[in-house]
């Protein structure tokens, strides 16, 4: 739940801010939504129909546990989707 502190030669991409459920979240270009959420300490960002919290499970786009709504498009896999400046992310309840 943190960004690894690598040697000074290592550099992340440019800093950006994404909006998660209305609140700004700092991230770096090259990170995925799931990466940015986990780095901020957040473990779960979806609730199932039965109210169970879910976050990242497979991390490679297979399990569909990490779904978020991105700029209005629903059911986007957070583990595969790179962040971008101003991106609006809504963590979601599974419908219906």
């Amino acid at each position: 739940m943190s960004r690894i502190k690598d040697s000074p030669e290592f550099q992340r991409g440019a800093p950006v801010t994404i909006i998660v459920d209305g609140a700004p979240l700092p991230a770096f270009v090259g990170e995925t939504i799931a990466g940015a959420l986990l780095a901020s300490g957040r473990r779960a960002w979806q609730h199932t129909r039965h109210g169970q919290p879910r976050g990242m499970f497979c991390g490679i786009g297979v399990c569909f546990d990490c779904l978020v709504t991105v700029n209005g498009a629903s059911k986007v896999r957070a583990c595969l989707t790179p962040v971008a400046e101003g991106m609006i992310v809504q963590t979601q309840e599974t419908t219906p």
Binding site: I4, A34, L38, M56, G59
Partner: peptide, 13 residues
């Protein structure tokens, strides 16, 4: 998942 985050994004889950 843990390894991909490390390799690709240098993030600890």
């Amino acid at each position: 998942a843990v390894q991909t985050l490390i390799k690709e994004q240098r993030i600890l889950a």
